[in-house]
Nucleic acid binder design. Structure first.
Lengths: 140, 140
DNA sequence: CAGGATCCGTTTCGATACTG
DNA sequence: CAGTATCGAAACGGATCCTG
C-alpha cells in the first residue's frame, strides 16, 4: 500500500459539503429518506432554518450534486434530486452511518452483517441503486 | 436491501466530527500524514488558527477519538494519537478522499485501481494497519 | 399556501497578539 | 513550543415577511 494521496485531497469542494453539518444532513435525507421538496427537507428532525436550507440547496446545486426541477405533472412544486455526482456521495454517508451506529448507538440493532466488507459494499451499491430507481420513477 | 437505518443515524456525535471542517482535517492529518504534535497539526496546508486547533483537540479528546499523552522519552512535548475509535473513522476519511479525487482533481493520478471494491477495502485496511503500527512505534 | 428571502440578536470564526 | 486571550468579521437561527 505505497500509493500516496495528494495533500490537497479532501480539501477542495469536498469540504464545503462534508465539513458542513446541513449539507450532510440534506444529502442523507435525500439519499436515505427520499426527501425531495423544500418542505420535506425543512421538516428534518434536526430542524434546519429555512434560510440555511435555502442557502445550502443553492450551494449543493452550484457544486453539481443536486438538481432543481419541477415534476412533470406538477409545475408548481420545486423538487431537488441528487445527480450522479451526488449519488456517489453514498459511500461517505453510509460509512458515517455505520461509524455512528457502531459508536453512538444506545440500543442494539442488527447492523452487524455490514462488518463483512462484501456485504457493506453491496449495501452501499443497493442504496445507490434504490435512489436511482427513485429518480427514474420521480421524473418519469 | 430492506434494512432500515434509524433516523437518528448520523445525527449524534458523528456530526460534531464529520460536520466540522477542522475536525476532519485534523483526523486526516493524523491518519494519513502521521502528525502528532500541536505544531505538526498547526502547520497544515489549510492553516488552522491555533485557538481553533486547541478547541478541536479538546473536542476530539472528549469524544474519545484521540488521546493526549507524552512521549516516553520526552516529557515536555504533548502528542496526540488516534484511538481505535478514531482509527475506525478511516473508511469515512478515505471515501471522502476518493470522492474528492474523483470529482475535483485537476490532474489525473492513478487512483483508478480503487474503483475495484476489493482493493478499496484493502486500501482502507492498509491505512488503518499502518496507523496502528505508527502508534505502536511511537509509544514503544 | 408553497417556496423561499430578509432582518436582527447571538454565536462562532479566524487572524493576530500574548503568556507560561 | 503549546497553547490562551482578544476582537472585528462572518455565520447562525428563528421569526417574520414577501411573491407567485
Amino acid at each position: 500500500m505505497k500509493k500516496k494521496f495528494r495533500s490537497s485531497c479532501l480539501i477542495a469542494s469536498a469540504l464545503d459539503l462534508i465539513g458542513d453539518k446541513w449539507s450532510l444532513l440534506i444529502i442523507r435525507d435525500m439519499l436515505l429518506f427520499k426527501k425531495k421538496t423544500f418542505k420535506d427537507l425543512a421538516e428534518s428532525d434536526e430542524g434546519v432554518a429555512t434560510n440555511l436550507l435555502s442557502s445550502r440547496l443553492k450551494l449543493l446545486e452550484s457544486i453539481g450534486v443536486i438538481t432543481k426541477r419541477k415534476l412533470p405533472e406538477n409545475k408548481k412544486t420545486n423538487i431537488y434530486l441528487l445527480t450522479n455526482k451526488g449519488i456517489d456521495l453514498a459511500p461517505i454517508i453510509m460509512e458515517v452511518v455505520i461509524w455512528s451506529d457502531q459508536y453512538v448507538r444506545e440500543y442494539n440493532e442488527d447492523m452487524n452483517e455490514y462488518e463483512n466488507p462484501e456485504s457493506k459494499t453491496g449495501m452501499i451499491a443497493g442504496v445507490q441503486e434504490a435512489y436511482k430507481e427513485f429518480v427514474r420513477k420521480t421524473i418519469a
